[in-house]
Every structure is written in C-alpha cells, then in structure tokens.
C-alpha cells in the first residue's frame, strides 16, 4: 500500500507501523465519575467496519509522525490522510 503522507508525499506502507482505530485519540477524562467505565470502553471496545475505517499509522521508518489514515477495509483504498496531531487538536485535545 502507499500512504500519501501530508508532509512527505506518497510513502510505502512498509515504512509505517499500524496501531488501529483512530478513536484512541479520544482518551476519556480521568476525573469523570464513571472514569473506569469510560476507560474500559476506550481500551477494549472497537468497531470493525467493512468499509471506511479511520486508523492510526506511525511513520516509524520516516519522520515519526502519527497519521490518521482513512482506509476502506474491503478494498484498501485510502481516501484521506491527516496528521494525528491536527486531528487531535480539531477534536479539542490540547495539553
């Protein structure tokens, strides 16, 4: 597969390490009343879509960016690649 890195252009997927569902960005608030339940969902529950899937790839053999790659799990077509940091900021994460 070829991943179109937002900064570096098209790179072979062999340069990357895969981690899975990009929802791992949405880490719960540790001070919530039901924090343990929220963290359990966060840690263990994943959707397994046949189709578009947003997932985390780490450019380990490259610039060490974490990317959010939108990939169709049935065709491997990649429709979007973003810097995970930008995604995290857009979802309200900061410090």
């Amino acid at each position: 597969m070829i991943i179109n890195h937002p900064l570096l252009g098209p790179r072979d997927s062999a340069e990357f390490t895969y981690m899975g569902d990009a929802r791992l960005i949405n880490r719960p608030d540790w001070q919530a009343d039901d924090a343990v339940a929220q963290f359990t969902d966060y840690g263990y529950l994943r959707d397994n879509p046949a189709g578009a899937h947003r997932e985390l790839w780490f450019h380990e053999g490259g610039d060490r960016s974490w990317l959010v790659v939108t990939r169709d799990t049935t065709t491997h077509e990649i429709t979007n690649v973003e810097l995970a940091r930008d995604v995290a900021r857009a979802e309200g994460r900061s410090k």
């Binding site: 981690m19 880490r27 985390l56 060490r64 995970a84 940091r85 995290a88 900061s94 410090k95």
Partner: peptide
C-alpha cells in the same frame, strides 16, 4: 526501546498535542 519511543510519540502527538 522502540515500543516505548513509539508510545511516547503517540501520547505527545495524539493525546496532548499542545504540550
């Protein structure tokens, strides 16, 4: 060594992007 570095970059970029 490799896995910990990867994990630290994940925490830095994905969880606390403005640190």
């Amino acid at each position: 060594a490799v896995g910990v570095y990867r994990h630290m970059e994940f925490v830095r970029q994905c969880l606390f992007p403005d640190m």
